[in-house]
Design a protein around this nucleic acid. Structure first.
Lengths: 239, 239
DNA sequence: AAGTGGTCTAGACCACCCC
DNA sequence: GGGTGGTCTAGACCACTTC
């Protein structure tokens, strides 16, 4: 049987949790600095950091690189099978959505992309990199990869809107079916910088492939979410 | 622009990654101890630990409490919408499955359970706690909560088998529809101890509600996965 | 310029696992 | 009983954000 050890760590965690649930701190508000907290709890910064990391794992607080620790706002509820687009989903949940195009380029499909898109020959892709905000916080980095032959001149369009709607309006492609995978991974330089993370911090990765009416592939998408910002919810009835 | 700082940390991570991809270490094999590694890399245990934690986030290695660090075996691919049961899913992926019943008890539904089960009055529940292994590693702690009125005498059955099949065979309840939520959280004492985790380590939580033919609720289920052990994959066509 | 988190050193004791 | 990771101290310098 395990002893019920009362460590510094659990004492600090309990205190901080009480502070968070007391409502003294608003959502997205900054916590005192690590140095201040270590003074208040008469301990070292390393121990404080461990306590903060534990609360981060529980989804109570989040970090912005070299800016500090903040209280988590409520999570966005996200159904990756829903045909509803990002701005509508966010608005439906009484939050404010924003999308910013970071970069657009053409490239040859790499291994991962070729496999997801089921390409049997080397193909040219359009890649669209965007960052999406909820209530002014960047929470999602998303890269869409499209087979360029199927989307002539799409790079001349306004790409900060819903791509799903753009596909339908300009090319007549409607998402009929999609498949996706969810994993956790470390943020690379690009993702980290867009989401104000430290490189290597954990993000939730969703790889999705969209299929149109005839069953052929439209595009594939790589989503990298701040893990504290989202809750995946799926119902087989409403697929 | 960010400077391309070459830290100790990234040096150690790169070296360890090379070691892992070299194939010198087999899946589930133990890494050298933190003290050994800190000597090899001429650094302190804290820095080594940070490097190991980073690799844990990337899903390359995992910990067992006070036993050491190990190489991650390939992930189990899991579709929570599939009607396929655990043992079959694991066998289909050429892995070995095992289920162990930890505890069974009756209790009154708490808030979370009442809400998931859509109970409008205080109800008695059967709760079945089990741990599931893949290739002899405990990777999933699962708690099933059933409304006791609907499942007379179920506690006399062998509960290490598939409950879905038991529901069908003994009571005629077939899962027709299910809904679920995915989040990350810290492991509590029970979960941690069953999965050889340290309390507070991150686990992937899946809350699921199953509905039978007539649309009424069968049970709800709380799954806690070792995050490195699983990859969620869903296809709207095969739902 | 001041303050923040990110990284790092050089130790220590403890609870628990394995032999 | 020896070795492991878990926890903890008391500092330090650096890169970056904010003012």
């Amino acid at each position: 049987m395990e002893k019920n050890t009362l460590t510094q760590l659990s004492r600090i965690k309990a205190n901080l949790k009480q502070l968070l649930s007391s409502g003294l701190l608003q959502a997205a508000q900054k916590l005192p600095s690590e140095r201040e907290l270590s003074a208040q709890f008469s301990t070292t910064r390393i121990t404080i950091k461990e306590a903060l990391l534990a609360l981060e794992i529980e989804g109570l607080i989040y970090r912005e690189k070299r800016r500090g620790w903040f209280v988590c706002p409520p999570r966005l509820v996200y159904n990756p099978l829903s045909r509803c687009h990002f701005h509508q989903m966010v608005n439906d949940q009484q939050r404010k959505a924003q999308t910013q195009v970071l970069a657009v380029h053409t490239q040859l499909a790499d291994n991962e992309q070729s496999q997801l898109l089921a390409l049997d020959k080397i193909s040219q892709l359009f890649c669209i990199h965007r960052v999406r905000h909820v209530d002014n916080r960047p929470v999602l980095y998303v890269k869409n990869c499209l087979i360029s032959e199927l989307f002539p001149d799409i790079l001349q369009q306004d790409l900060s809107q819903s791509l799903t709607q753009l596909y339908l309006r300009e090319y007549g492609y409607q998402t009929q079916r999609s498949s996706f995978e969810v994993t956790l991974c470390g943020a690379d330089q690009q993702v980290a910088s867009a989401l104000n993370l430290t490189q290597g911090q954990q993000v939730l990765k969703i790889c999705r492939v969209n299929y149109q009416q005839q069953g052929t592939i439209i595009d594939c998408e790589f989503e990298y979410w701040r893990p504290d910002a989202v809750k995946i919810a799926i119902d087989s009835a409403t697929g």
